[in-house]
Protein backbone atom coordinates (compact mmCIF):
# COMPACT_ATOMS: atom_id res chain seq x y z
CA UNK A 1 0.00 0.00 0.00
CA UNK A 2 1.44 3.35 -1.03
CA UNK A 3 1.78 5.86 1.79
CA UNK A 4 3.55 8.52 -0.21
CA UNK A 5 3.11 9.10 -3.89
CA UNK A 6 4.79 11.80 -5.98
CA UNK A 7 3.60 12.27 -9.52
CA UNK A 8 5.69 14.42 -11.88
CA UNK A 9 6.52 16.88 -9.15
CA UNK A 10 8.46 20.05 -9.98
CA UNK A 11 9.42 22.92 -7.77
CA UNK A 12 10.57 26.01 -9.58
CA UNK A 13 12.01 29.03 -7.81
CA UNK A 14 12.04 32.34 -9.64
CA UNK A 15 12.05 32.05 -13.40
CA UNK A 16 13.91 28.90 -14.07
CA UNK A 17 15.61 27.54 -11.00
CA UNK A 18 14.35 23.98 -10.91
CA UNK A 19 14.96 22.66 -7.43
CA UNK A 20 12.94 19.59 -8.35
CA UNK A 21 12.36 18.55 -11.90
CA UNK A 22 9.64 16.09 -12.80
CA UNK A 23 10.15 13.69 -9.89
CA UNK A 24 7.91 10.67 -9.48
CA UNK A 25 8.14 7.85 -6.95
CA UNK A 26 6.16 6.07 -4.29
CA UNK A 27 6.91 4.73 -0.82
CA UNK A 28 4.93 1.93 0.75
CA UNK A 29 3.70 1.79 4.27
CA UNK A 30 6.35 0.35 6.57
CA UNK A 31 9.10 1.01 4.10
CA UNK A 32 12.41 2.72 5.00
CA UNK A 33 13.57 4.97 2.18
CA UNK A 34 16.67 7.09 1.97
CA UNK A 35 17.16 10.15 -0.22
CA UNK A 36 20.76 10.84 -1.18
CA UNK A 37 22.51 13.30 -3.35
CA UNK A 38 25.06 16.12 -3.20
CA UNK A 39 24.30 19.56 -1.73
CA UNK A 40 21.87 21.52 -3.88
CA UNK A 41 20.47 18.44 -5.53
CA UNK A 42 17.00 19.16 -4.16
CA UNK A 43 16.93 16.86 -1.13
CA UNK A 44 15.69 19.46 1.30
CA UNK A 45 13.08 20.72 -1.15
CA UNK A 46 11.77 17.21 -1.53
CA UNK A 47 11.67 16.72 2.22
CA UNK A 48 9.85 20.02 2.77
CA UNK A 49 7.30 19.00 0.20
CA UNK A 50 6.61 15.66 1.81
CA UNK A 51 6.71 17.30 5.27
CA UNK A 52 3.88 19.62 4.25
CA UNK A 53 6.16 22.58 4.76
CA UNK A 54 5.96 23.47 1.10
CA UNK A 55 3.83 22.77 -1.96
CA UNK A 56 4.97 21.78 -5.47
CA UNK A 57 4.84 24.16 -8.42
CA UNK A 58 3.70 21.35 -10.72
CA UNK A 59 2.61 17.78 -10.16
CA UNK A 60 0.91 16.00 -7.31
CA UNK A 61 2.04 14.90 -3.87
CA UNK A 62 -0.23 12.67 -1.89
CA UNK A 63 0.24 11.39 1.63
CA UNK A 64 -1.96 8.61 2.94
CA UNK A 65 -4.25 9.15 0.01
CA UNK A 66 -4.62 12.92 0.56
CA UNK A 67 -3.49 15.14 -2.26
CA UNK A 68 -1.66 17.95 -0.52
CA UNK A 69 -0.67 19.90 -3.63
CA UNK A 70 -3.69 22.15 -3.52
CA UNK A 71 -4.00 22.60 0.25
CA UNK A 72 -3.63 25.97 1.93
CA UNK A 73 -1.30 26.57 4.85
CA UNK A 74 -3.93 25.92 7.46
CA UNK A 75 -4.78 22.55 5.93
CA UNK A 76 -1.12 21.69 5.45
CA UNK A 77 -0.53 22.32 9.13
CA UNK A 78 -3.33 19.91 9.97
CA UNK A 79 -1.97 17.14 7.74
CA UNK A 80 1.53 17.64 9.15
CA UNK A 81 0.22 17.56 12.70
CA UNK A 82 -1.68 14.31 12.18
CA UNK A 83 0.52 12.31 9.86
CA UNK A 84 4.13 13.40 10.10
CA UNK A 85 6.90 13.38 12.68
CA UNK A 86 9.90 15.58 11.87
CA UNK A 87 13.52 15.06 12.90
CA UNK A 88 15.97 17.83 11.99
CA UNK A 89 19.70 17.90 11.47
CA UNK A 90 20.05 20.79 13.93
CA UNK A 91 17.60 19.24 16.42
CA UNK A 92 15.54 22.45 16.91
CA UNK A 93 14.36 22.09 20.44
CA UNK A 94 12.61 24.98 22.20
CA UNK A 95 15.52 26.24 24.29
CA UNK A 96 13.56 27.18 27.37
CA UNK A 97 11.64 23.92 27.67
CA UNK A 98 12.95 20.74 29.29
CA UNK A 99 13.30 17.51 27.31
CA UNK A 100 9.94 16.18 28.41
CA UNK A 101 8.25 19.51 27.77
CA UNK A 102 9.67 19.60 24.27
CA UNK A 103 7.95 16.30 23.67
CA UNK A 104 4.77 17.52 25.29
CA UNK A 105 4.63 20.59 23.05
CA UNK A 106 4.06 18.31 20.07
CA UNK A 107 1.29 16.51 21.96
CA UNK A 108 -0.21 19.83 22.94
CA UNK A 109 -0.43 21.14 19.39
CA UNK A 110 -1.73 17.79 18.20
CA UNK A 111 -4.35 17.05 20.81
CA UNK A 112 -3.59 16.87 24.48
CA UNK A 113 -0.43 16.98 26.58
CA UNK A 114 0.13 13.79 28.56
CA UNK A 115 3.21 13.81 30.73
CA UNK A 116 3.21 10.07 31.35
CA UNK A 117 3.11 9.26 27.70
CA UNK A 118 5.87 11.77 27.01
CA UNK A 119 7.97 10.16 29.72
CA UNK A 120 7.45 6.77 28.10
CA UNK A 121 8.50 8.18 24.75
CA UNK A 122 11.70 9.49 26.29
CA UNK A 123 12.36 6.11 27.92
CA UNK A 124 11.98 4.48 24.54
CA UNK A 125 14.90 6.53 23.27
CA UNK A 126 16.85 5.87 26.48
CA UNK A 127 16.42 9.32 28.01
CA UNK A 128 14.07 8.56 30.90
CA UNK A 129 16.63 9.93 33.33
CA UNK A 130 17.19 13.18 31.47
CA UNK A 131 13.56 14.25 31.15
CA UNK A 132 13.91 17.34 33.31
CA UNK A 133 16.99 18.73 31.60
CA UNK A 134 17.08 21.77 29.34
CA UNK A 135 18.42 21.30 25.79
CA UNK A 136 21.60 23.18 26.61
CA UNK A 137 22.32 20.60 29.33
CA UNK A 138 22.05 17.72 26.88
CA UNK A 139 24.65 16.37 24.45
CA UNK A 140 24.00 16.49 20.72
CA UNK A 141 23.03 12.83 20.61
CA UNK A 142 20.68 13.26 23.51
CA UNK A 143 19.09 16.28 21.89
CA UNK A 144 18.55 14.34 18.71
CA UNK A 145 16.95 11.51 20.65
CA UNK A 146 14.58 14.02 22.26
CA UNK A 147 13.69 15.12 18.73
CA UNK A 148 12.94 11.54 17.76
CA UNK A 149 10.80 11.05 20.85
CA UNK A 150 8.99 14.22 19.93
CA UNK A 151 8.53 13.06 16.34
CA UNK A 152 7.04 9.77 17.54
CA UNK A 153 4.74 11.00 20.23
CA UNK A 154 1.68 11.54 18.05
CA UNK A 155 1.95 8.14 16.31
CA UNK A 156 2.67 9.62 12.89
CA UNK A 157 2.19 7.64 9.68
CA UNK A 158 5.53 8.85 8.49
CA UNK A 159 8.81 9.85 10.13
CA UNK A 160 10.76 12.40 8.13
CA UNK A 161 14.39 12.79 9.08
CA UNK A 162 16.67 15.43 7.60
CA UNK A 163 20.31 14.37 8.07
CA UNK A 164 19.51 13.14 11.59
CA UNK A 165 23.08 12.11 12.21
CA UNK A 166 24.71 15.00 10.40
CA UNK A 167 25.68 16.79 13.59
CA UNK A 168 26.61 13.72 15.65
CA UNK A 169 29.76 11.80 16.42
CA UNK A 170 30.16 8.14 15.55
CA UNK A 171 28.97 6.82 18.91
CA UNK A 172 25.85 8.96 19.03
CA UNK A 173 25.18 8.27 15.37
CA UNK A 174 25.12 4.55 16.08
CA UNK A 175 22.73 5.04 18.97
CA UNK A 176 20.37 7.16 16.89
CA UNK A 177 20.48 4.75 13.97
CA UNK A 178 19.68 1.87 16.33
CA UNK A 179 16.53 3.71 17.29
CA UNK A 180 15.58 4.11 13.65
CA UNK A 181 16.19 0.40 13.05
CA UNK A 182 13.96 -0.45 15.94
CA UNK A 183 11.26 1.91 14.68
CA UNK A 184 11.47 0.30 11.30
CA UNK A 185 11.15 -3.15 12.75
CA UNK A 186 8.03 -2.01 14.56
CA UNK A 187 6.53 -1.08 11.21
CA UNK A 188 7.10 2.71 11.04
CA UNK A 189 7.51 4.32 7.65
CA UNK A 190 10.73 6.33 7.50
CA UNK A 191 12.00 8.75 4.91
CA UNK A 192 15.53 9.87 5.66
CA UNK A 193 17.61 12.44 3.84
CA UNK A 194 21.34 11.86 4.12
CA UNK A 195 24.55 12.28 2.21
CA UNK A 196 26.32 9.53 4.13
CA UNK A 197 26.27 6.28 2.04
CA UNK A 198 26.64 4.05 5.10
CA UNK A 199 23.54 5.59 6.61
CA UNK A 200 21.76 5.47 3.30
CA UNK A 201 22.54 1.80 2.91
CA UNK A 202 20.35 0.97 5.88
CA UNK A 203 17.24 1.78 3.88
CA UNK A 204 15.23 -0.65 1.80
CA UNK A 205 14.61 1.85 -0.89
CA UNK A 206 17.30 4.11 -2.31
CA UNK A 207 16.45 7.37 -4.03
CA UNK A 208 19.14 9.59 -5.45
CA UNK A 209 18.74 13.13 -6.69
CA UNK A 210 21.02 15.11 -8.93
CA UNK A 211 20.26 18.65 -10.08
CA UNK A 212 16.66 18.15 -9.10
CA UNK A 213 16.16 14.98 -11.09
CA UNK A 214 15.63 11.54 -9.69
CA UNK A 215 18.55 9.49 -11.01
CA UNK A 216 18.28 6.38 -8.86
CA UNK A 217 15.13 4.68 -7.61
CA UNK A 218 15.97 1.14 -6.59
CA UNK A 219 15.49 -1.53 -3.96
CA UNK A 220 18.48 -1.95 -1.71
CA UNK A 221 20.02 -5.28 -2.48
CA UNK A 222 21.88 -5.39 0.85
CA UNK A 223 18.80 -5.49 3.05
Amino acid sequence: MELIKLDKVSKIYGDDLRALDNVSFAIDKGEWASVMGPSGSGKSTLLNMIGCLDTPTKGEVSIGGINISQLNKQELTKVRRDKIGLVFQKFHLVPYLTAIENVMVAQYYHSMADEEEAQQALERVGLGERAKHLPKELSGGEQQRVCIARALINYPDLILADEPTGNLDKENEEMVLDIFRELHSQGHTILMVTHDPTVGDLAEKMLELEHGRLVVNSKNSLV
Binding site: D82, L86, V94, A106, Y109, R150
Partner: peptide, 16 residues
Amino acid sequence: KEEIGLKKSLGADNKN
Protein backbone atom coordinates in the same frame (compact mmCIF):
# COMPACT_ATOMS: atom_id res chain seq x y z
CA LYS B 1 11.32 33.75 14.66
CA GLU B 2 13.02 30.37 14.78
CA GLU B 3 10.89 29.26 17.69
CA ILE B 4 7.76 30.22 15.80
CA GLY B 5 8.93 28.20 12.81
CA LEU B 6 9.66 25.20 14.98
CA LYS B 7 6.33 25.33 16.72
CA LYS B 8 4.61 25.54 13.39
CA SER B 9 6.52 22.56 12.05
CA LEU B 10 5.41 20.66 15.14
CA GLY B 11 1.85 21.31 14.12
CA ALA B 12 0.94 24.57 15.79
CA ASP B 13 -1.31 26.70 13.67
CA ASN B 14 -1.22 30.51 13.54
CA LYS B 15 -3.89 30.79 16.20
CA ASN B 16 -1.87 28.71 18.67
